[in-house]
Nucleic acid binder design. Sequence first.
DNA 1: CTGACTTTGTGCATCGGTTCACAAAGGGAT
DNA 2: ATCCCTTTGTGAACCGATGCACAAAGTCAG
Lengths: 225, 225
Amino acid sequence: MKSPSHPRDRGIPEATVARLPLYLRALHLMAERGIATVSSEDLASAAGVNSAKLRKDLSHLGSYGTRGVGYDVEYLVYQISRELGLTQDWAVAIVGIGNLGRALANYGGFVSRGFRVAAMFDADPEVVGDTIAGLNVEHIDALEAAIKRRGVSIVVLATPAAAAQEVCDRVVAAGVTSILNFAPVVLTVPDTVDVRKVDLSIELQILAFHEQRKAGGPLMAVDTQ
Amino acid sequence: MKSPSHPRDRGIPEATVARLPLYLRALHLMAERGIATVSSEDLASAAGVNSAKLRKDLSHLGSYGTRGVGYDVEYLVYQISRELGLTQDWAVAIVGIGNLGRALANYGGFVSRGFRVAAMFDADPEVVGDTIAGLNVEHIDALEAAIKRRGVSIVVLATPAAAAQEVCDRVVAAGVTSILNFAPVVLTVPDTVDVRKVDLSIELQILAFHEQRKAGGPLMAVDTQ
DNA sequence: CTGACTTTGTGCATCGGTTCACAAAGGGAT
DNA sequence: ATCCCTTTGTGAACCGATGCACAAAGTCAG
Ligand SMILES: NC(=O)c1ccc[n+]([C@@H]2O[C@H](COP(=O)([O-])OP(=O)(O)OC[C@H]3O[C@@H](n4cnc5c(N)ncnc54)[C@H](O)[C@@H]3O)[C@@H](O)[C@H]2O)c1
Ligand SMILES: NC(=O)c1ccc[n+]([C@@H]2O[C@H](COP(=O)([O-])OP(=O)(O)OC[C@H]3O[C@@H](n4cnc5c(N)ncnc54)[C@H](O)[C@@H]3O)[C@@H](O)[C@H]2O)c1
């Protein structure tokens, strides 16, 4: 099914994909500073990873470095961007324009790399019609039509938890296959659909776990007979 | 160094820790609905994981199930909460009260599980003095003093990227060892400090990668000679 | 008290990912 | 043209996490 000895092989490990944006960010900063060439050691430390890992990650995209020299910054930016699909621009819709949805809509760093907020939806008549970052909030009833009309391919869910699954179902029925979910629920979707979640509360709980260990761990012996 | 055959062994795998909050959330929902007992199969499907994984995860905390029956919901909630350190409450500070910081400060689900916003800081005199969710925004100059006075142990960073490392350094110097970072930068900290990051842009890029595959993958042959 | 049935807890094979360490490749100096 | 130096790309050992599959443990009906 796959050509085994083919370079430029498709099938980049998920862990690698998750780090490519990190490398890209570091490379953009370097490009801005006029750095033309970078070694795996330097780029790795800018991205906060091990240099062997970085080299292995990049090797999945092809052989874009020069031994004895390093990687050409511009060229690598281009290759990673292309691999991630950032050479095209992506129309994003945000559903649920409350505290969080508003913050996201106003966020500039969004647009910076090929992502464009193309539509916003809410169910509250109070909110519908508001203009945020130059764009009108539409009623959730218009969801399917607007998704198709605007070519939305990524949806950000920022509704309350109780509404998330229902909105998700509609969005999926409308043909969207990439969802970023902020609501604290496990979404059920067909496996053709990718869901990524961001859950602040989980992050805090993980921090609390380690914090407790740090505080209690060394002292714990005191009380443990 | 560690007692090998000891039950209730310390050293819970990181992957398990990251899932405990998920189980906890599902359990809370069940408790609300009056469910007293749950099998690993049901809890696993509510949390969106494999049941063997769930059982193995729970086995790290101890042997809290009953064979033939399942797990007592209330008891499991208590055990997981205790393990995560949620039986105490945690004072959280938010630094950078812009779009995102404001959304976080207003977020209710925050407080729900033992996390309390105890302080907010900003550098902008326009923002300092505002009241958000009943709490006053303080000037960043008061950072160290307020962290100590209020017993803050977790800091959420929501400043622009350019300010994040500097604020981080101050926060660490003030004795904080748990940081949740929203700014798109790699923070450098002593290894006694835990940093978790949330990066919307990275999530979108990962989605874009897969979306591109879905769209381009099957069609790619068309163009590939 | 016994036996059928349910469900946990875990040994084990497997897998994906990380890291080390080094041969191969290229650049630049002489 | 040759040699030395730097740095890549990757084989291989290692490590943690996953998931299957089942024996052990417990419930409950009769
Ligand atoms: N605010 C945060 O910092 C934060 C942090 C973590 C997670 N979250 C989660 O993100 C989600 C949004 O949080 P928030 O603070 O913005 O809540 P919010 O209540 O301020 O906003 C929710 C918005 O969704 C709209 N909405 C409700 N039902 C809808 C529907 N069916 N279709 C379209 N819109 C609908 C509401 O009108 C409202 O404007 C919640 O699930 C919350 O748990 C928020
Ligand atoms: N808004 C979003 O949806 C979003 C999404 C992803 C990431 N982020 C990141 O989160 C961070 C905040 O985003 P935002 O949209 O809220 O930005 P913002 O500009 O609205 O808010 C930043 C706030 O930080 C304050 N600030 C600046 N320097 C400071 C300092 N040294 N000490 C204390 N406060 C200081 C500013 O006065 C401002 O109020 C940024 O790093 C951004 O990249 C935001």
